[in-house]
Amino acid sequence: MIFDLATYVLTALGLVFFTAGTVGLIRFPDTFSRLHALTKADNLGLGFIALGVAFQVESLAQIATLALIWALALLAAGTVAQLVARAALTTSQEDE
């Protein structure tokens, strides 16, 4: 089925982005670039996975739920990234 193929391709693409984000989180040198890797790559990865799963739904309400989950995760991740960055900015001289 073409829908199954779409799911495979899109979720695989999502996993690639998650892997890239994780590698960035581990390898990047400071808090700011790590946050950059986390928020950009992981949000995109989650979006691709949600899009992939959306090809398997049975009703429009489920698509709306998936979209809502992604939107809320984006909002939370974006906000938290800003807050962590600000905290890191003010305490970058202190240890941990």
Binding site: L75, T79, Q82, L83
Partner: peptide, 14 residues
């Protein structure tokens, strides 16, 4: 006018 104040207004209705 920061991010948290915006988040604090946006999230409660949901």
């Amino acid at each position: 006018d920061g991010v948290l104040a915006y988040f604090g207004r946006f999230l409660p209705p949901i």
